[in-house]
C-alpha cells in the first residue's frame, strides 16, 4: 500500500476524533477522542517514516506516546478532582470560568 492510503486513513481517524470532541459532553470520552487524534498523528508519522527510510518518525511516535501518557494522567486527575467538587463530568456544567 502506498503512503497516500495510510495518510488518508490517518486523516479519517483524526476527523473521527475531532467530531467526537465536538459532539460529546462527557469529559472522559472527550479525552479518549484526543487519544484517537494523537494516534492518527502517530500513524502518519510511521507511514512517512517508512516512505523516507528515516527512523526519526518512529522515534517521534515514542515521544508522542510519552506526552500522551503524561497528558492522560494529568487530565484524568483533573477530571477526578472536578468530579469530587461538582459530582459531574459533563463539560457543559463545568463553566466556572465562563464570563
Amino acid at each position: 500500500m502506498s503512503l497516500e492510503w495510510y495518510l488518508a486513513l490517518s486523516a479519517l481517524l483524526f476527523t473521527v476524533g475531532v467530531i467526537g470532541v465536538l459532539i460529546r459532553r462527557n469529559a472522559i470520552i472527550i479525552f479518549m477522542c484526543i487519544e484517537l487524534m494523537l494516534n492518527a498523528a502517530n500513524l502518519a508519522f510511521v507511514a512517512i517514516s517508512r516512505e523516507l527510510g528515516d527512523p526519526s518518525g518512529q522515534v517521534f511516535v515514542f515521544f508522542v506516546m510519552t506526552v500522551a501518557a503524561a497528558e492522560v494522567a494529568i487530565g484524568l486527575a483533573i477530571i477526578v478532582s472536578v468530579f469530587k467538587h461538582r459530582e459531574t463530568v459533563n463539560v457543559d456544567e463545568v463553566d466556572s470560568l465562563k464570563g
Binding site: 488518508a8 486523516a11 483524526f14 476527523t15 475531532v18 465536538l22
Partner: peptide, 14 residues
C-alpha cells in the same frame, strides 16, 4: 464541519 475536515485531510494526504 467534520465531513469538510475529513475531505480536506484526505485531499492533503492523497
Amino acid at each position: 464541519l467534520g465531513i469538510v475536515f475529513a475531505l480536506e485531510g484526505v485531499y492533503i494526504a492523497v
